[in-house]
């Protein structure tokens, strides 16, 4: 994990990710906030590549940038008269204060703990190992996750039906 390239990559990625996350918070336009969110997702995918988790990095880009960001954009589009100025609520200041305190606690704990780290890259981190693990040790959560996805799919379709479509399919 050493080398000039790795350090450069880490600092550049950290800068991009944190500045983009700050941009989500600060920008005055909801669409710009979504674009900064996409940049954050790509930055986190870069971190995954740096941590030898290449399958998860690609899955992150496919799922988050390819699907979830598009969903968010669609939701912004389908609510035309909602406020698009990315403004804050009345409880903004206590919320920010709370997260600052939480950040202080996290940073203290991170730097105070004596982590027992390993030296090299762990061995069994390839995509085939992930596939084996998902289908042997963790097969029950895998199946439950697929049921969950089906339920979410059906639920999302059902929630956004207009009353005419519901009347069409009602059991008369």
């Amino acid at each position: 994990m050493d080398g000039f390239g790795v350090s450069l990559a880490f600092w550049v990625l950290a800068a991009i990710t944190l500045v983009a996350a700050g941009g989500v918070m600060v920008s005055r336009n909801l669409l710009h906030a979504v674009l900064f969110l996409i940049l954050t997702f790509v930055g986190v995918a870069g971190f995954f590549v740096l941590l030898s988790a290449d399958f998860i990095a690609m899955a992150q880009v496919i799922i988050y940038v390819g699907a979830i960001a598009v969903l968010v954009l669609f939701a912004v589009l389908l609510t035309p008269r909602a406020s698009r100025d990315n403004g804050e609520t009345r409880w903004a200041l206590p919320g920010v204060l709370l997260s600052v305190c939480l950040a202080a606690i996290f940073l203290f704990v991170i730097h105070d703990t004596a982590w027992k780290t390993r030296d090299g890259v762990p061995q069994g981190l390839s995509a085939s190992d992930l596939g084996t693990a998902l289908l042997t040790t963790w097969v029950v959560p895998f199946e439950i996750a697929s049921v969950l996805l089906t339920a979410a799919l059906v639920g999302a379709i059902m929630l956004t039906r207009s009353p005419e479509e519901e009347a069409e399919d009602a059991l008369a």
Partner: peptide, 26 residues
């Protein structure tokens, strides 16, 4: 940790519900 706290700040402080969701995703 910084990403998590930024996401928490966004989720607690945005007025638009989609903005809150963006914080949760972060």
């Amino acid at each position: 940790a910084l990403l998590f706290c930024l996401g928490l700040a966004i989720a607690l402080s945005k007025r638009n519900a989609v903005g809150v969701l963006m914080g949760v995703e972060l």
